[in-house]
Nucleic acid binder design. Sequence first.
RNA 1: GGCCUCAUCGUCCAGUGGUUAGGACACAGGGUUUUCGACCCUGCAACGGGAGUUCGAUUCUCCCUGGGGCUACCA
Length: 489
Amino acid sequence: MAKSAENSSLTSGEVRVRFAPSPTGDLHVGGVRTALFNYLFARHNNGKFLLRIEDTDRKRSTPEAINVILDGLAWLDLLPDEEPVYQSKRIERHIAAAQKMLEDGYAYRCFCTPDELEERRRASGDYMYDRHCLNLTEAEIQQKLADGEKFALRIRVPEGRVSFDDGVHGGMQVACTEIDDFILLRRNGAPTYMLAVVVDDADMGITHVIRGDDHLSNTPKQILIYRALGKRIPEFAHVPLILGKDRKRLSKRHGATSITEYRDAGYLPETMINFLGLLGWSPGDDRDIISRRELIELFDISGIQSKAAVFDDARVRWLNGQYLGMTDYGKVEGKLERLAEDAASAGELTEVPDSKEIKTAWDLLKTRIHFLNDLFTDCRYMFRDPDVYDGKGVRKHFLQNGVVDHLQVLADDFSSLGDFRAASVEAAIRKRAEEWEVSTGKLIHPLRLACSGVTGGPGLFEMLEALGRDTVVRRINNALNWIKSLNNK
RNA sequence: GGCCUCAUCGUCCAGUGGUUAGGACACAGGGUUUUCGACCCUGCAACGGGAGUUCGAUUCUCCCUGGGGCUACCA
């Protein structure tokens, strides 16, 4: 009673799922979501999450693209539990399966050339194969073989109907008359996708096929192959595709679609897991922040939405801001240091700040930014003196009576302050405001503009402390000079 | 064209045979006597249309419309 290796996992009841992308350039966020659902399902059921690279289309598949997939999954900590399976290395298995189907009468040779097929299709207006070669006699077949005619292998679709239960869509039923005698093996001997998936999924012991909705219509065809091969048919769950704002399938023209672009734009892995996990799935309540741990704990196929979801950039952006605000410096230190170097070489910063400076800025600003990069672009005043002052701010806060005197005195006050902590700075400023009988805002706004060049940002006192006394005094003096030169014109 | 599938605010996600149909993003207004793309509050805003079942349908059924998918010797 020896069990074959390929079936042991099925009989043991272990859940085995897979993500099966084709390496054609990038790792699409839609693909990532499919991978995530598979991963979550596997983890929830203590099963295995596998990866199969569908690289049989040699023209479009490249080694670089395979690395893109691996890198993307690694970034999200979604790496498979076993070595990836490369479909291109399994062609012998596919061919053997097709051969078996031919021998068992589930497939037949088709000698029609593509040109002939197209011509007949056009003439009849019928899209399906006319079964021309199914009616060939054995003698005719032998003759053609002897003549060296090339042939493809087609499945012989049986009578009746195919039905299955889809985890998302429920009961599905298709009449076999709707199914074409599709090709299993091309005239050049190469297996088609339809054959390869089934053989691979069967060999990998896949118990649950969770994949994109675009395969829903292919499923009956694949079930026919499972039947012909005598393999156990897995459970299916077809996840609706992700759409762009115009409700068209999400693609390049909608902007960023590859996970790499999101990573490079400053999104955190946690953001993407959270966002994608809740796009088309929900635990049944209305939460919108959820951890990977909770996702694993709560995930089930019945929670998958049956309608397609639109990818909303504004929402991911917001979510990323939420995550940044919860993130300790240590977690993003490396990334920020790299970004700082990039910003310096791009001219955003005049020099590369050290880790301590970056941490100070991070702690002060992490709740107000949406992307890691924002720290070195919008908030670059934390690292370099402003070389330009916001125009509206200048009119409102610089070109007012007394501003120059105020700033001058304040700079002196700061220089002689016992310490430069926020509380001391605040006390000094409030004291002067009272003395001069002006609102605190009259001093705060010009100071902010002088020290940051912009009119928005964190609380002023904290910001000044973070910048440090020397920087603050220097920037005030710079601003003073700038205002004076303006007045002289 | 044929087949499959889907349908709650602009978007994401809840929800029920009887609810003021809820939360979030976005947007708008207000607040924060220290600003702001941060935070707080408020507001705007949906059950696609038509039949049927039912005492009663957003919820169940059918049709229509609209969206998406498949229909390759691509995957």
